[in-house]
Design a protein around this nucleic acid. Structure first.
Length: 331
DNA sequence: GGTAGACCTGGACGC
DNA sequence: GCGTCCAGGTCTACC
């Protein structure tokens, strides 16, 4: 994907940002159209821009500091597109990449979290990756409800293959809200296999296109976590788990997103006993001391457990996780 | 406010 | 290869 006219952007990151660690920090990095190449440390995916889809490859350059032998990542990213993109598209691409990689979370924000939960200071975990858009995060969350992980992978792949746009090098994008809003329920059900989620996803897309899901309001510090959570619960297909998960994707970490994996974690790692409902209550109490960082503490504990089984997340391969990360194989 | 059952898909299992 | 069972979170109806 080289070409003299193709655009390359450089994006400055916070000093503590590490592409491998911070991108491979949440399960969505394994879902299409996202791709992580462990050998080269490259993030790639298609971004939807004003003049059409553009594939981007993102790397973090390294340099060997004077007097040292090991290379250290530089606080910048190199973003190579498969076509030339306009100035306004470049600004949009920067914003989408920044959202995806949580570049808005500063080194000081990370320090605040580590003061509350010092367990993650050494490895430096604080950021959780997400999608370039809130709409994609919402739909991905719905594809993760009431299914096993392989089905979530399949739904996201089909979304891109069936409804996504195509970049000049033949890569598919995640479909826009406008595209899904215009799609028939039968297409979602028959070709993307989303089942009963079909109409709910179309309704979510229509709410997005009408501006009724206002990311600026949802992320405004003046909007309380309770207001945000209550609003999310009014959305079709969004219950307590999905609302909690969308909260963390919005950068609000004061709530947990409790599901069957939480029960497993409570039993397996925290040694909790009782009915599932009892364990969920115990989980909620267990993470209270982490306050506004509850989800980060919970999630990195869960992630650490996966890594104890499967190695560091930045060594995982998408294909292998489709079969290796099912509940029965993680017990 | 709490709870039972339906909603779909796909993996696991038995034959 | 086929049929059956089950897991998974949300929604609705009902008590």
């Amino acid at each position: 994907m080289t070409g003299a006219r193709n655009t390359t952007l450089t994006i400055t990151t916070p000093a503590d940002f590490r592409l491998a660690r911070d991108y491979c920090s949440y399960g969505y990095f394994l879902l299409e159209p996202n791709h992580w190449e462990p050998e080269s440390g490259t993030v790639s995916r298609v971004l939807t821009l004003e003049h059409g889809p553009a594939h981007v490859e993102i790397t973090q350059p390294e340099r060997v500091p004077e007097g040292k032998s090991r290379p250290k990542p530089l606080p910048k990213l190199r973003c190579r597109f498969d076509k030339a993109i306009t100035k306004s598209e470049q600004a949009d691409a920067r914003a989408q990449i920044s959202r995806m990689l949580r570049l808005d979370l500063t080194h000081d924000d990370a320090k605040s979290f580590h003061r509350v939960d010092p367990r993650w200071k050494r490895i430096g975990r604080a950021r959780l990756s997400r999608s370039p858009s809130l709409f994609e995060d919402i739909i991905k969350t719905v594809t993760s409800c009431n299914v096993a992980w392989p089905s979530t992978i399949h739904m996201n792949r089909r979304f891109c293959e069936v409804l996504g746009g195509t970049s000049p090098t033949g890569h598919h994008s995640f479909p826009s809200a406008e595209k899904i809003a215009r799609t028939r329920a039968g297409t979602l059900r028959g070709r993307i296999r989303v089942g009963y989620r079909d109409q709910r996803m179309i309704d979510l897309a229509r709410l997005c296109t009408r501006g009724e899901i206002d990311e600026a309001w949802l992320t405004d510090p003046a909007t309380s976590d309770d207001e945000c959570f209550k609003f999310l619960l009014t959305l079709p297909g969004i219950g307590p788990y999905a609302a909690g998960n969308i909260m963390q994707l919005l950068g609000r970490y004061s709530r947990l997103a409790l599901d069957s994996e939480s029960v497993r974690h409570g039993k397996t790692v925290l040694g909790m006993t009782g009915t599932d409902a009892n364990i969920l209550k115990k989980m909620a109490r267990h993470y209270e001391p982490f306050g506004d960082h509850r989800f980060q503490s919970y999630w990195f504990e869960l992630w650490d457990w996966y890594e104890s089984k499967k190695g560091r997340s930045w060594t995982w391969r998408k294909k292998e996780t489709a079969t290796a990360f099912t509940a029965s194989k993680l017990k």
